[in-house]
């Protein structure tokens, strides 16, 4: 590597644009606008996030791609179309995420594990076909840049399905569309960017040992407080 131009976190909002979203799509758009405002209040986090919005139905439409939200006047508007094809969404991410990560790295950025916010109100209409795409997306062997997926179920979404989509149980939410959902996504994104400087402990129990016995040469001579 030559120079690290910056530390970036790609964030993908993948929103259900199926017909059943019609009653809530207005609130969802209000939520995106609030997300935008909330992220701008966190200048350090906003500088690191590259924001993509994908609307999925029978196919996937890119509403925004790797945007720096500080330079966007407003976020694009989601619409409603036809069915709820999860497979189309995960296939789009499978091709988009590695391409985006490679492009950002090529530009000289250090890229942190992407985050996907998956927003849906309904059961997939392509059960169980979507699971194959999903499994390839989240498998770090197949997809080295496999994202963390935060799943937000809206309205009629079943909890079981939302849990299946989230990559960790604590990443599964049942949400009310609107301002609160936007704030929740903003908060989550900010927390993720902060985790970049958080130097978490690696869980590698097979490669490390915990110091549990006093070493023979130990002398406590430090006074820190």
């Amino acid at each position: 590597m030559a120079e690290n131009l910056g530390n970036v976190l790609p964030v993908y909002v993948v929103a259900d644009e199926s017909g059943s979203m019609a009653p809530v799509v207005g609130e969802l758009n209000a939520g995106l606008a609030e997300l935008h405002r909330a992220l701008l209040r966190e200048p350090m986090a906003a500088a690191k996030v590259r924001f993509t919005i994908l609307g999925f139905s029978v196919d996937v439409q890119t509403r925004l791609s790797l945007a720096d939200l500080r330079t966007e006047a407003a976020l694009p508007v989601l619409s409603t179309r036809s069915s709820t094809n999860y497979g189309a969404a995960f296939e789009a991410l499978l091709s988009q995420i590695p391409t985006d990560v490679a492009a950002l790295k090529e530009q000289g950025y250090a890229v942190y594990r992407p985050a996907v916010f998956f927003l849906t109100d309904g059961q997939p209409t392509d059960e169980p076909a979507w699971r194959d795409s999903y499994n390839r997306l989240v498998d770090r062997e197949t997809t080295p840049a496999a994202p963390n997926i935060i799943a937000c179920g809206i309205g009629g979404a079943r909890a079981r399905t939302i849990l299946d989509v989230a990559t960790r149980p604590e990443f599964a939410f049942v949400a009310t569309p609107g301002v609160e959902l936007g704030l929740a996504i903003a908060e989550f994104s900010v927390a993720l960017t902060k985790s970049i400087v958080a130097s978490a402990r690696a869980v590698a129990a097979d490669k490390t040992e915990l110091v549990v016995e006093r070493p023979s040469s130990f002398v406590m001579a430090v006074d820190v407080v």
Partner: peptide, 20 residues
């Protein structure tokens, strides 16, 4: 040397010691 690929956040830390 740093590893290529996705930038990692997690690190080994005391009071854990690498075995090697």
């Amino acid at each position: 040397q740093e590893s290529p690929g996705i930038a990692e956040v997690a690190t080994v830390a005391l009071p854990h010691l690498p075995r090697d």
